[in-house]
């Protein structure tokens, strides 16, 4: 079976600083894959390379077998990849409902049309309400998104990310800055909305990682030092040495 995401020898340097130093990663369809690693390991850079925010220096990234080199973010999105951001990235002045409806427009085939009225399209309204129902924000539909609480904004961000119907979902630290109860809520939400989809996420919270992921990759100084099932990764001495041991100790 063709991998959903296939990364070969990916490298990225900013000037002389090599941030990603040859990453090889294959993520199968339907897999929940977490990328972990210490601060400054290049996790966010890797995300930004995959989603076309930065161009890679060398190597290749393939989404469902199609090379992503030189593609703009909006083109990559149209190919079925969607992402969320580490810092909440929504449309703060628009209502919650509008936020979700906007993320449905392209996948519903409206493109740049100026001859359709969005409020008259039942499919858009229904679709947006369904997403709002999934992320439990129906009650907040008419509020400007900027007024939501932090956890609600994160939930909205996830809603926007999944709304377009992309089958590869990339979440960048979805639980960053959340309390325990909020984290549990978001983890449940992620599990619910990413069913039958490929999930790639960067996460610091080991509880979240081991609770959600089928596969874990450990990124240290721009290289992946281990990939595998959570249990295997946990017991891998290299990983323990580099990162996980310290992090797990800190957890307990």
């Amino acid at each position: 079976m063709m991998a959903a995401l296939e990364i070969t020898d990916l490298k990225k340097s900013f000037g002389k600083a090599e941030i990603i130093r040859g990453v090889n990663l294959s993520i199968a369809k339907g897999e929940r894959h977490a990328i972990i690693g210490p601060n400054g390991a290049g996790k966010s850079t890797l995300f930004n390379l995959i989603t076309g925010r930065f161009p890679q220096t060398s190597g290749s990234i393939k989404l469902h077998g199609h090379d992503l080199r030189g593609k703009a973010p909006f083109e990559i999105n149209r190919m079925g990849l969607s992402r969320s951001f580490q810092i909440t990235n929504i449309f703060p002045k628009m209502t919650v409902f509008e936020n979700v409806r906007c993320s449905l427009l392209w996948s519903h085939g409206y493109k740049y049309s100026f001859w359709n009225m969005v409020s008259r399209s039942q499919d858009l309204t229904d679709g947006a309400l369904e997403i709002l129902d999934q992320i439990n924000l129906l009650q907040r539909a008419e509020l400007p998104a900027g007024l939501l609480s932090y956890a609600e904004q994160r939930a909205l961000e996830i809603g926007i990310t999944i709304a377009g119907g992309a089958d590869v979902i990339m979440l960048d630290e979805p639980t960053a800055g959340m309390s325990h109860s909020e984290t549990d809520y978001i983890v449940e939400l992620i599990r619910k909305v990413t069913q039958n989809k490929t999930l790639v996420m960067v996460e610091h919270d080991m509880g979240v990682v081991f609770g959600l992921a089928d596969q874990i990759s450990v990124l240290v100084y721009g290289e992946i030092i281990a990939t595998g099932h959570p249990e295997d990764v946990r017991s891998n001495p290299k990983v323990q040495e580099a990162y996980l041991g310290a992090a797990l100790e800190a957890e307990h």
Binding site: T51, R53, A72, P73, F74, N77, R78, S82, R83, F85, N89, I90, F91, P92, K93, M94, E98, C102, S103, L105, W106, S107, Y112, I160, T161, G164
Partner: peptide, 16 residues
């Protein structure tokens, strides 16, 4: 409106 508020997010929704 979406591009006005947040052009980068709009790009990740499939719109240039």
């Amino acid at each position: 409106n979406a591009v006005r508020d947040n052009p980068e997010r709009a790009e990740f929704l499939g719109y240039s």
